[in-house]
Amino acid sequence: MRLFLNQKLRRYLLLIVVITVAAVEIPIIAVGHLTKPVPSDTIIVLGAKLIGDQPSTMLRLRLDEALQLYHQGYAPAIIVSGAQGLDEVASEASVMRTYLVAKGIPPEKIYVEDKSYNTHQNLLNSKNIMREQGFRQAIIVSNASHIRRSLVLAQQLGIEASGSPAPMADNTYLTAKQYAREGAAMLSLLVFNR
């Protein structure tokens, strides 16, 4: 009898885990594929890891998305956001700026926010730049797995924003890892509001 109850309990717990994962991950995936940008005052590009003094694949995909939006006239300015991590040779924002300038964006159209270490700080500090510059609306650019949490945080901070999901890296392991990470972060945000 005890063995039967243990098996039944394990199945029940497994079902709860599966339902929880689905409830968290499905909206992340859906928003990451369905969100469309709205013409705005600025584009906020959220930072990601550097490889030496170059953008990582994930960050390059974000920057290329921002370039496309800028050239299509979605916004006349870009805010690049990200501090220098302990294992990085420069701030993410400075490397992002260099990349965008090399691709033809006028330097005066790029605002550098290099004090933030996480998404909440990225958006809070970018909001301060928006206020200083009189920008009212933003397009948030990050990879598809990160857009839902970014938009939820922007809403909590009172930023009027749409999203423009950049593609994920062409690497199944990295993509699965990013979605799992975002699922945990989103669950923490929904449960603990942080």
Score class of each variant (00 low, 15 high):
residue 105 I to G: 00
residue 105 I to M: 14
residue 105 I to W: 10
residue 105 I to P: 03
residue 106 P to S: 10
residue 106 P to C: 15
residue 106 P to V: 09
residue 107 P to G: 13
residue 107 P to D: 14
residue 108 E to N: 11
residue 108 E to H: 13
residue 109 K to G: 05
residue 110 I to R: 01
residue 110 I to G: 05
residue 112 V to Y: 04
residue 112 V to Q: 10
residue 112 V to K: 11
residue 113 E to N: 07
residue 114 D to F: 13
residue 114 D to S: 14
residue 114 D to I: 08
residue 115 K to R: 15
residue 115 K to V: 14
residue 116 S to F: 11
residue 116 S to C: 12
residue 116 S to I: 06
residue 116 S to M: 07
residue 117 Y to L: 15
residue 117 Y to P: 00
residue 119 T to R: 09
residue 119 T to M: 13
residue 119 T to C: 08
residue 120 H to Y: 15
residue 120 H to F: 13
residue 121 Q to A: 14
residue 121 Q to G: 11
residue 122 N to L: 09
residue 122 N to T: 06
residue 123 L to A: 10
residue 124 L to D: 04
residue 124 L to G: 00
residue 124 L to W: 00
residue 125 N to P: 02
residue 125 N to W: 04
residue 125 N to L: 12
residue 126 S to F: 09
residue 126 S to V: 04
residue 126 S to E: 09
residue 127 K to D: 03
residue 127 K to V: 01
residue 129 I to H: 01
residue 129 I to K: 01
residue 130 M to E: 01
residue 131 R to D: 12
residue 131 R to F: 05
residue 132 E to K: 13
residue 132 E to C: 02
residue 133 Q to H: 03
residue 134 G to F: 04
residue 135 F to R: 01
residue 135 F to P: 04
residue 135 F to C: 03
residue 136 R to S: 12
residue 136 R to C: 00
residue 136 R to E: 03
residue 137 Q to N: 14
residue 137 Q to Y: 10
residue 138 A to H: 03
residue 139 I to Y: 10
residue 139 I to S: 00
residue 140 I to Q: 02
residue 140 I to E: 02
residue 141 V to L: 03
residue 142 S to C: 12
residue 142 S to P: 08
residue 142 S to Q: 14
residue 142 S to T: 14
residue 143 N to M: 11
residue 143 N to D: 13
residue 143 N to L: 08
residue 144 A to I: 01
residue 145 S to M: 03
residue 146 H to M: 10
residue 146 H to A: 12
residue 147 I to V: 15
residue 148 R to W: 11
residue 149 R to F: 15
residue 149 R to G: 06
residue 150 S to D: 04
residue 150 S to I: 07
residue 150 S to H: 07
residue 151 L to N: 07
residue 153 L to S: 02
residue 153 L to R: 13
residue 154 A to D: 02
residue 154 A to Y: 11
residue 154 A to V: 12
residue 155 Q to D: 13
residue 155 Q to M: 11
residue 156 Q to C: 04
residue 156 Q to K: 15
residue 156 Q to I: 06
residue 158 G to H: 11
residue 159 I to P: 00
residue 160 E to T: 15
residue 160 E to P: 02
residue 161 A to R: 08
residue 162 S to Y: 06
residue 162 S to K: 07
residue 162 S to L: 13
residue 163 G to L: 10
residue 163 G to T: 06
residue 163 G to A: 06
residue 164 S to Y: 03
residue 164 S to W: 02
residue 164 S to T: 09
residue 165 P to S: 11
residue 165 P to F: 05
residue 166 A to P: 02
residue 166 A to D: 06
residue 166 A to M: 07
residue 166 A to G: 03
residue 166 A to C: 09
residue 166 A to Y: 01
residue 167 P to M: 07
residue 168 M to P: 00
residue 168 M to A: 07
residue 168 M to E: 15
residue 168 M to Q: 01
residue 169 A to E: 05
residue 170 D to H: 06
residue 171 N to M: 04
residue 171 N to V: 03
residue 172 T to P: 02
residue 172 T to N: 13
